[in-house]
Structures are given as C-alpha cells and as structure tokens.
Amino acid sequence: MSIDLKTIKHISKLSRISVDEKKAEKLAGDLNSIFDFIEKLNELKTDNVEPLTSVAETTLKLRSDEVKSKNLRDQVIKNSPKENEDYFVVPKVIE
C-alpha cells in the first residue's frame, strides 16, 4: 500500500495543517515507511476479537446536575490571541 500526494493533501485538509509540495513529499515518504511497518498487523486474524477501547474496566461515573462553574469570562478570555472583553474573535466567516 502506498500513500500518494493526493491522500496527503486530503488528510492535511482534514487536519487543518497546510502542506506545500515539498512538505507533502516528505510526509508521503515518512508515512509510507511508517505504514509499511504498521501493515504487520495484517498477519493477524482478528475477526472474532472484541475491540478494546479502554483498559479501565469500570463504567462511566455520573455527576450530579449542579452549577459549580460560575462566570469565568475573564479567565476564559484572558489567553485569547485577539483582545476583546466579551468574545473570542476569529477572521470573518462567510457562510
């Protein structure tokens, strides 16, 4: 199996990481060698194996419906790259 430049561009788009031709070629090379190594898994038959998502063998704990987090606007906005007292600000989105 081989990952081509078109695939690299598609996944770069999905992951919102821009790539130019040079970077795409480098990535394709790296990913192909990594996937060559990953293909080893195909040696195994796993049809009847239950997938393991978490090793924590408990179930989800439920919390009570209480409002504990009060107005944190200053804290939440403090680190945001664009100064604004009330909102997070991003370049205009045209729908």
Binding site: L62, S69, R73
Partner: peptide
Amino acid sequence: TSATKFGAEPNTQVSLVDAAFPGMLPVINE
C-alpha cells in the same frame, strides 16, 4: 458544571471544559 440559562451575557457560562483548555476532561451529568 457551567449553567445553561438562556440569554446570559456572552461567554459568562463557559467553563474551562467548555472552552477546551489543555488538560480539561468531560464528566457526565447524570
């Protein structure tokens, strides 16, 4: 654990979890 009231001032009902700060984790409401 932040509030859900309608019509609050912008970004006043936002916890660190809601704003996806690094290391913040979800805990489900029963």
